[in-house]
Structures are given as C-alpha cells and as structure tokens.
Design a protein around this nucleic acid. Structure first.
Length: 677
DNA sequence: GAGTTTGAAACT
DNA sequence: CAGTTTCAAACTC
C-alpha cells in the first residue's frame, strides 16, 4: 500500500480517470502538484502519518530530507533520552541545553494545542518559510492524533501542503527544498509527538546541529568533521543535514555518527591531552572522556555501583570493535526503539522516555564513554557518588604499574589525577604501550576486566543493583584477610559483586554475596546436575555414587572444585562453548590447586552458565520456577534453574532439557537486542 | 589533611 | 610458588 501511495505521490499522477472530474480541474488550477494532494494525499497522510514508509520519496530531495528528518527526530528522542542520563552530569552543558530544550518541546507536543503550535512557530528561525512549515507540520499533528475526523485532518494537511508549495514557488531554492523535504517528512510522522517534535526541531535543529558541529570540530582527522566544518558556514537548516545525510543514510546514522564523533573526540583529545589544556568546559569534559578509549572493564566494576555496564571488554581494541559494532547495529535497534518510544510517548511520555533511556545502557561504548566522562566529573565534583572515574594519586609508580588505577583501567591519566612523575600520558604513549605489553606478557589478562559479567546481564540493567552481584564475579577473586570483604579494600566488594570460588578471602561477609553461599549454591547445582544426569542415564548412577565429591554439599573448596571439574556434564551435553565463554571467556582464573586451565575453563563456564540461566530464565521461560531457584540458593544467590528443575523429579528432565534449549536460544537473542553486547 | 590500614601488584 | 616488599587506595581520626 505504501508503495502504491508513494508512486502516486512521486510520479505524475495518472489522471486518466480524474481529469474530467471537477475536483481535478479545481485542483489543477491550484497547483501542478495539487494533483498529488487530490486523492493520494488524503490517504497517504492518514496512513503515512501513522506508519513509516521508508522509500516513499525517491526523489533526491525528498529522500534526502526524509532521512534528515529521521535523523532529527531520532536525534530528538535520543537527546531526550540522553538528557535523562545527562542529568547525571555526563555531557557537556551544551548538550544538556539542547536535550532539555527538546524534551520540553516534546512535552509541549503532547499538549497538542494551538498555542503550542504558535509558540513553536515563533521559534522558527526563518519567518517566511519557517512559519509555513511549522504551521503545516503542526496542524496535522495536532488534529490527526486526537482521533478526530481524518478528513478534516487530511484537509489540513492538504492545505498545509498547498501552502508549502506556494511558498516554494515564492521562495525557491534552499528554503523551498527544505519545505519540500519537510512536507515529505511530515507524511512520515507517525505520532503527534513526531511531527510536533519535528516542528520544534525545525528551530531546534539549528542549535542541535551547531552543537553537533561544535562537537565534531573538536575532532581531527575525521572525514565527517571535515564535511561538517566545510558546511559549517552554510545555512544550518540545510547544510548540516546534507553533510550528514550524504555520509549516512537514516537517523541511526546520525546516532552512529555521534558515537564516532565521540570516540574520535576522545581519541583525538587523548592524543593532544598534554597540549589541549581545556579551553572550555566541553573540552575538559571531553578530556575526561579521552581515556575511555582504552577503558576496559575495570569501569564495569565501577559502574556496577553506579551505572551498570553489561559487556565485557578485554581492552581498548575490544572497545573499538564494540564501537564499530555499535555503529552498525545501533541503528536497527534505535529505529525500532524510537518508533516504540514515540508511540508510547503519545500516551505515556514518561514511559517512552524511560524505554529510550534504558536502551542506551547496553550500548557499551557509549556507556563507557559516559562512564569515563562521569568518572572525571564525579571525581571532581561529587567524589562520593558514582566514583566511576579513574583518578589516581600515584607517587612512585609513575602511573606505569597496575597500582595506578588509571593505568590499570587502560586509560591515560588526566588533570584531576594527583599523580607524580606521571608517564601515563599520551605524550609517553610509547612508554605506556611498552609497559603495558610488558605487564601483559607477564599476565596476559592483567588489563582484562576484573569483573566478569554475563553477557545477558543486560536484563539487569534496569534492575536494582542487588541483582548485579549474582551475575558478576571478580575474575581472580579477592584475598581479603581483615576486611571481611566488607570494605572497598576487597575488590569484589568494591566491584559490587559477591565473592566466588576464586576468592581466598577469610571470614567473607561480602554484602553482595558470601563465598560460602556461592559455593553452596554451586554445589547444590552440581548435585542436582548429577542427579538429573543419573536419571537421564541410569548407567551413570554408579559413577555418581562412587564420586564422593558430587554429593558432598558441605564439602569446602577442594571437593567443590572437583565437582566443578566434572562439569563436562554441562558443557558436553548442553551448552556450546561459545555460550559458556560469552562472559567468562576472557577471564583468568585463579591458579587452581591442581587443576589447570582446562579445569578452570570448565569450572568457570559452570558459574557463568548458571548465572546466565538464572538471569535469563525469568524473562525467557515465563513458567520457570524461579522462586524455587531463590529458595535453593541461600543468600539470594541464584542458581541455575535447570538444575533445580532437574532435581525435583525425573519427569522434569525433559522439561529441564527444554529449558536448556530455550536458554540456548535466548542467550544469543539478547545481544542482538542490545547492540553493544 | 595526615596517618593508618588494607590488599593488590610487584619483586625475590 | 611462597614469602616479602612496594604501592596506592580506602579508611580513620
């Protein structure tokens, strides 16, 4: 349907049937283009206004601007979303201003009154075209969405289009093209908020683009920057969009662009860290971001206390990969989300925003960037709150050892640092890299994230922090002797995760999860696993019975490890290795007492898988006895649901198997929903 | 802010 | 690999 309508709109309308009609004559007198309006427009608007027909306008202008609109609209939503997160002092003031302005405008959009329309109209920069555009754009948005007479709204649209076209004749050139595009874009709006937002964006875009351009200006060696800068002097209403649009198609491209810009900015500033003494606030903020380019999962650990980051990055390279990955995937997600958000925003603006707000959480790169940014800001401004920003105070290590938090986090030291004789600066990049390599040669995972988080923990992003510990563990575990894992001396506690099998702590009282409880839970899982195994294959009963380790729940560490080593049950029969190592693949395990890497690798999977399942099951398997899980695990530590299910009865075995299958299917599904995962 | 405590990192 | 030293963050006063 859309296609046909599109054709009707774009191509000269087949007039054969209508040429004789009085209506057609009337229309024909009004404007050559009115033919479009005659029939298709009415339908088109009604339909198009609530759906998003992508390739409607194939003409360069229309298409081009439609993208721009998407770009803008998306940008608007994204900024609204960003505002939520930016309220936590993430972004530059400029961004905040822009975002807040758009949020307000979006709110206004929901009001749907003429006053707002006029107000928005007043905001339009160019009186001539802008007024008309705004009027045209806003009128339909205010009528159609209210569910009133479609015909009337269509009429409004038609009139509006007519006005646009008239104005087009008069004004010509850029403005006209813009009007044309805007009119085309108008047809794409799906909700009052859409159109309204866009109407607001007509004027907002200027500032937004300015911000964008300004941000890009900070970067160097970037094609986009060049383009944008090259066009910077041109009318913002056309040029920036064009520049962006030429480079990217669609709204998400802009989003990617933002990411890229951010990343580039960070990179570039990192390069110039020494010389680029912050001239302004934005730049200083960016400086804070700089280190993030190499930020790894240390930040995640930190983030678990404040902002949750759900993906594990090995190193900066991974981040880069993630970044590019984001660039390709975010759009898909963002488009759907934007659509959904906009729809929701109609009736539940807050909800819609919330959805959008949570969406970026999985965007690891963004999160990392913001995290790094927040770190710096918070350390300077509110040391107590997020505390996610690295700022070292090294005196003797020259910030070239893992003692240095910045260095350990894979970031350069920045101004807020109080380090002495710091070599962890971009100007000493060679030294830093060499040292880093040296350390990595000693311990390849030295810069790996200290906290292993499950790939599916996305789902926890919106949950309370109490769930985080269950899904993440410290890679090597702690070695606390006196702090009882109740203070930040404990890396597990500091990371907001519970102690695990890897910990050698004494008197663990980790508030996020005691080691003992963890062990107990896993052992029970193992027991259940063995049980179910026996039930599945009676021949194994003897083996299990002869294996003391498998039924010694109270047995401390060594037996558990033994049982863990037997986890091939799990890995061999159920979960593919890739699943296992999604979250733990990079982890380095504490040196085992006797079992080496292989055993570790088998053990770790167990942990991860168990956690994965537990995290996912509630969402995937609606009928999963999650309560049982919690009941089984003391300390609220969650245990693998399948195990539990299997332990309850024989017949459940099949059920459990099914559950596993579901899990296997679901695990990969989540990453797709969250680009950065 | 200085001093102490703590545990990771580095070293032997 | 275990023990020791170094180091810097966390903590206390």
């Amino acid at each position: 349907m859309d296609n046909s309508q599109k054709k009707k709109i774009e191509t000269p309308t087949p007039k054969s049937k209508f040429e004789d009609s009085p209506v057609f004559n009337y229309i024909n007198n009004l404007s050559p283009i009115e033919a479009v309006r005659s029939i298709p427009t009415v339908q088109t608007f009604n339909s198009l206004s609530f759906t998003s027909p992508p390739p409607v306008f194939t003409s360069p202008h229309a298409s081009f601007h439609r993208e721009s609109r998407f770009f803008r609209c998306h940008n608007s939503v994204e900024r609204s979303k960003a505002l939520e997160s930016l309220d936590r002092s993430v972004s530059t003031q400029e961004e905040v201003v822009v975002a807040s302005g758009e949020v307000d405008l979006n709110k206004e959009a929901t009001l749907e009154d003429q006053e707002e329309d006029e107000t928005s109209r007043d905001r339009v920069d160019s009186p001539g075209t802008g007024d008309i555009v705004t009027q045209v754009l806003l009128d339909p948005s205010g009528v159609a969405p209210q569910g009133e007479d479609n015909a009337s709204s269509s009429e409004d649209v038609s009139v509006g289009l007519r006005k646009i076209l008239d104005a087009q004749k008069e004004n010509d050139t850029p403005g006209c093209r813009r009007l044309m595009a805007d009119a085309a874009e108008l047809l794409v709006f799906r909700s009052p908020n859409d159109s309204e937002a866009f109407g607001c964006l007509v004027d907002k875009i200027s500032s937004s683009e300015r911000r964008f351009c300004a941000g890009v200006k900070l970067t160097k060696r970037h094609d986009i920057t060049k383009d944008v800068q090259a066009n910077d002097n041109q009318p913002l209403a056309v040029v920036p969009n064009q520049s962006v649009s030429n480079l990217h198609r669609g709204s998400m491209r802009r989003r990617c662009l933002d990411f890229e810009v951010l990343g580039k900015r960070k990179k570039d500033i990192a390069d110039d860290d020494q010389q680029a003494v912050g001239d302004n606030k934005a730049e200083s903020s960016s400086k804070c971001v700089v280190p993030g380019i190499g930020l790894h999962l240390n930040a995640i650990a930190m983030a678990s206390r404040g902002i949750k980051i759900n993906t594990i990055h090995e190193d900066s390279a991974t981040v880069e990969i993630q970044k590019s990955f984001l660039g390709s995937t975010t759009p898909v997600q963002s488009q759907d989300i934007m659509r959904e958000t906009l729809d929701q925003a109609e009736n539940e603006p807050g909800k819609g925003l919330a959805v959008e707000e949570e969406t970026p959480k999985p965007l690891v790169f963004e999160e990392l960037n913001q995290d790094s940014l927040q770190k710096k800001k918070r350390k300077v401004e509110e040391p107590g709150e997020g505390d996610s920003c690295k700022r070292c105070n090294c005196k003797k290590s020259k910030c070239l050892k893992l003692y240095c938090e910045c260095f350990a986090a894979g970031v350069y030291c920045i101004e807020p640092c109080s380090c002495v004789d710091c070599f962890n600066r971009p100007i000493h990049e060679d030294t830093v890299l060499a040292t880093r390599k040296q350390i990595e040669s000693r311990n390849p995972l030295a810069f790996a994230p200290k906290v292993i988080r499950n790939s599916d923990s996305i789902m926890e992003t919106t949950d309370d922090a109490s769930k985080t510990p269950a899904s993440a563990r410290h890679k090597r575990g702690c070695n606390c002797k006196k702090s009882n894992c109740l203070k930040k001396y404990c890396e597990c506690f500091q990371s907001g995760v519970g102690c695990s099998i890897n910990c050698r702590c004494e008197g663990c009282k980790n508030a996020f999860g005691k080691k003992d409880a963890y062990l107990l839970a896993i052992m029970e899982s193992k027991q259940e696993e063995d049980l179910s195994k026996v039930q599945q294959n009676p021949n194994l009963s003897k083996e299990v019975e002869q294996n003391p380790s498998s039924d010694q729940p109270s047995t401390p560490l060594p037996p558990y490890r033994h049982t863990v080593v037997h986890q091939p049950f799990l890995s061999k029969n159920r979960l593919p290795p890739t699943q296992f190592f999604l979250g733990a693949g990079s982890s380095s395990f504490r040196k085992p007492d006797g079992d080496l890497t292989q055993a570790r690798n088998e053990k770790k999977p167990l942990e991860t898988v168990a956690e994965d399942k537990t995290e996912i099951m509630p969402e995937i398997l609606s009928n999963t006895p999650i309560t049982t899980i919690k009941a089984i695990s003391p300390n609220s530590k969650r245990v693998s649901p399948p195990h539990i299910g299997s332990s309850e009865s024989g017949p459940i075995i099949g059920k459990r198997t099914n559950g596993r299958k579901l899990i296997l299917r679901s695990i990969p599904a989540f990453p797709s929903l969250n680009p950065n995962q």
